[in-house]
Amino acid sequence: MSNEHSHNLRGIMLRCGAVVCFAIMSAAMKWASADHVSAIEMLFFRSAIGLPVVVAWLLLGPGIGIIRTKRPKAHLIRSMIGMSGILMNFQALIMLPLADVTTIGFSAPIFATILSALVLKEHVGGHRWSAVALGFIGVAIVVRPGGGEVLSHVGIAAALLGAIGTAGVTVTIRQIGSTEEPGTIVFWFFVASAIVSGSMLPFFGSVHSLETYGVLAISGVAGAFAQILMTMSLKAAPVSVVSPFDYGQIIWASLLGWLLWSTAPGTNTLVGAGLIVCAGLYTAWRESRKRRLTIAATPPLE
């Protein structure tokens, strides 16, 4: 087995682990919402309980010294965008079925392509714009305009805003990732999330059952491991290799939704998810092809 193939396989396995953890986190948050847990509380438990896991990972891996940064403003901007997106996603989980929230969330790469063109001034060719259009058609089918099972309009808006927030995070990480280590970015995001959400608990928090706190603890640990595994996957293999496996989260969300709430995804969700996945996979394939052509065109060092 070649070294590159071994690294790619490791990256894929890590990414699949991250996908399972993200699905567990989302399902746990959805379960906790039955006890009237707010989105702010979800963010607090995700960050406060996940932070020790992240610190342990840093101590065992790159070292705690990696948290030093010369770009605190960039981390603050990234964290604010990330927190806004996550809060919207959590609010959508409260109001919509798990599979629908997950499916709409995968429109994030579509918005990331648009923001890359507008903010980073990246060239986006006709093929990628076609994928964006296909993805938007998929989203339109999922949200069922004019027919099918009616979903909460507020919930749909929250899910779409969450996807835009995720896309914004993708763009900002591209900007600061050239000078900051992934562990640095993850650490400061968890710290900022814990501080901001903790300061808002007196206004949005309430007392819950021990079972609910246990479920929130599970979601926090799962979320931290998901973030770590995703970061490690990107160090092991290129984005174009591992990102297609993210769509496995739709399968896990549908399975957990059926097992826990007896809710199976409807026809609109399945058809829309298929179009969104096709758009995402095609974009990933184009990026992989572009990378290979760039490498092939690069002359060897003398």
Results as ranks from 00 to 15, higher is better:
150 V>C: 12
157 A>E: 05
58 L>T: 02
133 A>D: 13
123 H>S: 14
145 P>S: 10
75 H>E: 10
54 V>H: 01
171 V>I: 08
153 H>S: 14
71 R>F: 05
69 T>P: 03
103 T>A: 15
98 L>D: 11
110 I>P: 12
154 V>G: 15
91 Q>D: 14
98 L>G: 11
82 G>R: 01
159 A>G: 07
101 V>Y: 14
57 W>S: 07
106 F>I: 09
115 L>R: 08
115 L>A: 10
128 R>H: 05
93 L>N: 01
73 K>Q: 01
71 R>I: 00
110 I>G: 13
109 P>A: 13
57 W>I: 06
110 I>L: 15
95 M>K: 12
146 G>C: 11
115 L>Y: 05
132 V>Y: 04
95 M>F: 10
166 T>F: 11
166 T>W: 13
85 G>K: 07
96 L>N: 02
117 A>N: 02
121 K>L: 14
105 G>S: 13
161 L>A: 11
113 T>D: 07
105 G>D: 11
141 I>L: 05
131 A>Y: 08
144 R>L: 01
165 G>P: 03
174 R>Y: 06
68 R>Y: 07
98 L>P: 07
56 A>S: 02
140 A>Y: 02
165 G>C: 05
80 M>G: 12
166 T>A: 14
91 Q>G: 15
132 V>D: 08
172 T>N: 10
69 T>K: 01
66 I>V: 14
154 V>H: 14
99 A>S: 15
167 A>W: 05
60 L>E: 13
92 A>V: 03
86 I>N: 11
73 K>T: 06
55 V>R: 09
149 E>C: 12
96 L>H: 07
176 I>H: 11
167 A>H: 08
145 P>H: 12
168 G>I: 01
79 S>C: 03
63 G>A: 10
160 L>K: 03
67 I>V: 03
